[in-house]
């Protein structure tokens, strides 16, 4: 009987670790990373994973082992103890140090991604001069690029639904706006998520390092159509980006005849 229950408890760490090891093979791991800070975030995830994984294995195996060992029919009385001050000190101090280490290890990356003081200041796009405004509304993403005047909110703005085109290897800053409720900007491949608050303009930056097409997901419940609220992040080379912008502009100011609409 106790063999069976011990096995059950033991299977938790064994299968638990096994699924994490095999997850990548089952395509159950991170999607590819394409942003400049994504690797750091993945690294921090791994760091925590190894630390908690170690604790997980040790505690779960100890649990199974104790259950196995002390559920045997042994003669005489068990140990009589109310605890050990020394042990308590040890297992308070060691986790405390480890946890503080984890906390302080995070700070640099967090500051890099989210602090406005760390936003790109040198490049073409800055907090004051974003590449675009991304408008969220139930249940749509719309991108508003500045027109020739480089300023958003004027009559020559270009608007495009669904698809957000950005240049590769460039620090991109954009503004998040919402028309109605709270939405959230999430691109899994960028490891980037930021809620869109109505009434606020929230600047966000990233630097995509690989061309491609990535899903833009709404990550905050925004109503019945939350699952429909998808968008597309298209990362292209600078030359292609200029071309795409020219195309968007041509389409915006076209007389509709060429495209038939």
């Amino acid at each position: 009987m106790r063999y069976f229950f011990t096995l059950m408890l033991l299977l938790v760490p064994i299968l638990g670790v096994w699924t994490f090891v095999e997850a990548d093979r089952w395509q159950l791991w991170f999607p590819q990373n394409v942003s400049s800070f994504g690797a750091e975030i993945d690294g921090l995830f791994d760091l925590i994973m190894y630390m908690v994984g170690f604790t997980f294995i040790v505690t779960e195996v100890a649990l199974a082992w104790f259950v196995f060992k002390y559920s045997a029919n042994r003669p005489g009385k068990g140990a009589f103890t109310h605890g050990s001050h020394k042990l308590e000190m040890i297992w308070t101090a060691i986790p405390a140090v480890a946890l503080l280490f984890i906390a302080f290890a995070q700070m640099e990356t967090w500051a890099k991604v989210k602090f406005e003081s760390n936003f790109p200041k040198e490049g073409k796009y800055t907090k004051e001069r974003p590449i675009a405004e991304l408008w969220a509304s139930q249940f749509d993403w719309r991108v508003r690029y500045p027109g020739d005047d480089g300023v958003i909110g004027t009559v020559d703005d270009l608007e495009r639904s669904y698809e957000f085109v950005v240049p590769v290897n460039t620090d991109v800053v954009f503004h998040l706006r919402s028309r109605d409720v709270i939405h959230s900007f999430f691109v899994p491949e960028f490891r980037l998520k930021q809620d869109v608050l109505p009434g606020h303009t929230i600047p966000v930056w990233f630097r995509a390092e690989k061309e491609g097409i990535y899903d833009l997901v709404c990550a905050e419940l925004c109503g019945w159509g939350h699952y429909k609220m998808s968008g597309r992040m298209t990362v292209v080379s600078q030359a292609d980006f200029d071309k795409r912008m020219a195309d968007i502009k041509a389409e915006w100011f076209s007389n509709g005849k060429e495209q038939g609409q």
Binding site: T126, E128, R129, D148, D149, G150, V151, I152, G153, T154, V155
Partner: peptide, 26 residues
């Protein structure tokens, strides 16, 4: 059009070139 931004655009047009700093307009 947003008035503040419009002013910024006007500033950009008449100011020092097409890509002046939008912040100054703000």
């Amino acid at each position: 059009e947003r008035p503040k931004h419009k002013a910024a655009a006007a500033h950009a047009d008449h100011g020092d070139g097409a890509h002046s700093d939008g912040a100054s307009g703000e």
